[in-house]
Nucleic acid binder design. Sequence first.
DNA 1: TAAAAAATTTAGATTAGTCTAAAAATGAAA
DNA 2: TTTCATTTTTAGACTAATCTAAATTTTTTA
Lengths: 216, 216
Amino acid sequence: MNTFTEENYLKAIYHLSTQSESVSTNQIAASLHTKAASVTDMLKKLADKELINYARYQGVTLSVKGEKVALSIVRKHRLWEYFLVEKLNFKWDEVHEVAEELEHISSYELVDRLDEFMGHPKFDPHGDPIPDKNGHFKAHELKPVSALLVNTVGIISGVREHSPAFLQHLEKIKLVIGKKIKVCDINSYDHSITLLLEDELLYISRDVANNLLITI
Amino acid sequence: MNTFTEENYLKAIYHLSTQSESVSTNQIAASLHTKAASVTDMLKKLADKELINYARYQGVTLSVKGEKVALSIVRKHRLWEYFLVEKLNFKWDEVHEVAEELEHISSYELVDRLDEFMGHPKFDPHGDPIPDKNGHFKAHELKPVSALLVNTVGIISGVREHSPAFLQHLEKIKLVIGKKIKVCDINSYDHSITLLLEDELLYISRDVANNLLITI
DNA sequence: TAAAAAATTTAGATTAGTCTAAAAATGAAA
DNA sequence: TTTCATTTTTAGACTAATCTAAATTTTTTA
Ligand SMILES: [Mn+2]
Ligand SMILES: [Mn+2]
Ligand SMILES: [Mn+2]
Ligand SMILES: [Mn+2]
């Protein structure tokens, strides 16, 4: 089918496409920690296979076919992350690297049975939606905590940054998915925020507030 | 660490080593469906990494280091097969190909937690022993059904042939692992055998009898 | 024990993916 | 609208794994 590497390019293009309409060679290179010249080579190959729409110097978008492949990789990634956390007791900051490998296991039978085994979860451990076998999913309406006004409430439902360091920090201060928060104060100097979390006050930096997502 | 391909070579050498002391280039080529010239190239590479003992034209054995790697792949393969059958309801003839991919997932944390999750199984769905995390395992004392005398009994405990066709055939006639059998008659012309299996008589060919293993 | 057969290795190519360095295209600024 | 910085592509090379065909070594057999 497609190689491991082709799948990683398609997934990278998919994720970058959620930010901007068209994706540039340099964006892909940065996201895959590779060089622009390598990306150009691969883009030609993916265009030959009709997985992307590509014109020299003009950036790239996924074709319908390419998006289907990308969504199946994302589905596998997130289902495996859910499995690792819910069944094997991994922490939410430990699963990403393992899922980066597991997402390339080719059997669709496997991923569908895994989905069934876990009861068709809708969101992964980081709050990201899990596409169904047809690639359909419904995302939460997410806002960063930093966008809330004083005295408004929200439920922690996702993160914008997935680094182990950030996830561990959230875990440590008990700001995990599902918890209800209320904004008590916004510091006008450094934009740090004081939250109410289960009857306790909690200070978070602007940076944390920007990367922590809530539903209302 | 080691590439996917290096791991497959080490595993092939490991399995062939259970048959003969030293393993030949052609044996490896046949077992990996590749060409002798390719095998020679890889043997040089594995020898450089001190994973095998290799002298030109003399065949090959695994080094202690190489055997450790091979056993870890075998452990992963068999644990994943057990998982697929016991947790995801795959049939015993459907799991080998998927496990061929899963065995290369590198995380040891993953395989150890999987082992724990399943209660440290000792044998895979085909009766093959699962090495523990130190590579230790105890194999059954296995004999082919064809080696039994008339009126002796045994318990189905393994197979010598792992093809889906053979496994499906056994499944169909209910000759599955754990069942108790008694040899009622051995045909002196074609060596086919009449078995007693749960109060029912069953005819099996010499070929089936040779590839079906029992403990006494 | 010498010739023939079989097994193994070497030589030389190929393909996928990557890189650096240089060339070309684009777009922003003067 | 020309220049210049940035982005992107091309050119040429490298590594891992593979192949075919030819050469070499080992083993068998006569
Ligand atoms: Mn992830
Ligand atoms: Mn995730
Ligand atoms: Mn198997
Ligand atoms: Mn097995």
